[in-house]
């Protein structure tokens, strides 16, 4: 009972913070702080229109595909690679440096280069997503594996756990918070990657929608398009949080 009250309160706070945020936006748009800054209401109206006239649908049909493919590749390859690096010294030696360089590099600058190699199709977009998200997922997974508490490993050994049991029952669950942190960062970066690709390489999808409305000075539409991608990213990340609680149920109680 008390718990339900608490969760209702948490909802109230969330809604209140949204109201405050949108209110501030509306005021900023009314002043206006910049000629190209629309009010919240105008943006909301544009958002609704674009939702129902199919412009979002058309744009996301093009954006989601490379995003999904890229994020899936990054997740599976990234976790496998990071876990491998954490578990085997030899593997760590030959791969760690690549990902550290990739993470440090100004990847946005590399993205136009991809066009030279792979043209302007789906492949380029997927590669842009992967380049952005893979290093984050790999490095976080690797860090998670490395940070397994040594006494848990000793505990497993003291009960004659095999190496396989140690990996499956101790190391992976222990690493899962950092693996999930990597996934969240990686998925976020994947969104950046796909939008950058659509802004810089192939004017399609949601990136094109943003560019187009800017070029014709439809600022409410442009902001609605930007908002839509932020909302989609937020929803995806929340879904990931739910998945994490499934793997580490003790966090639900907290």
């Amino acid at each position: 009972m008390a718990l339900r009250d608490l969760s209702r309160q948490a909802w109230m706070w969330k809604i209140l913070s949204f109201v405050l945020f949108f209110g501030a936006w509306e005021i900023a748009g009314q002043i206006p702080i910049s000629l190209s800054f629309p009010t919240f209401v105008d943006t909301f109206v544009a958002f609704m229109r674009m939702t129902f006239d199919g412009s979002f649908l058309g744009a996301y049909a093009q954006t989601v595909q490379p995003l999904l493919i890229g994020v899936l590749i990054s997740s599976f390859a990234g976790i496998a690679c990071g876990v491998g690096m954490g578990l085997w010294r030899g593997f760590e030696w030959c791969t760690l440096v690549i990902f550290i360089i990739l993470q440090a590099a100004p990847v946005a600058a590399i993205i136009p280069l991809i066009t030279y190699l792979y043209g302007i199709g789906l492949t380029s977009k997927v590669i842009a997503v992967v380049i952005m998200s893979l290093p984050l997922i790999v490095l976080n997974s690797y860090k998670g594996i490395r940070h397994t508490h040594p006494s848990l490993l000793e505990m497993s050994r003291s009960f004659q756990g095999s190496r396989m049991q140690e990996i499956m029952k101790i190391i992976l669950p222990a690493a899962s918070p950092l693996i999930f942190a990597g996934l969240r960062l990686g998925v976020g970066a994947g969104f950046i990657g796909v939008v950058l690709a659509e802004l810089l390489i192939t004017p399609t999808g949601i990136g094109d929608l943003i560019t187009y409305h800017r070029s014709v000075a439809d600022y409410p539409e442009m902001f609605a398009a930007i908002t839509s991608i932020i909302v989609l990213a937020a929803v995806t990340l929340t879904g990931l949080l739910k998945l994490e609680v499934f793997v580490r149920p003790e966090n639900r109680a907290r």
């Binding site: 006494s151 848990l152 000793e154 050994r157 003291s158 009960f159 004659q160 669950p173 003790e250």
Partner: peptide
Amino acid sequence: TGPGPDRSFVFQDFALMPWA
């Protein structure tokens, strides 16, 4: 030569799995 079923260990830092 290694850990065996005849011995079990109680750890100073408990060594409990927080997720279990």
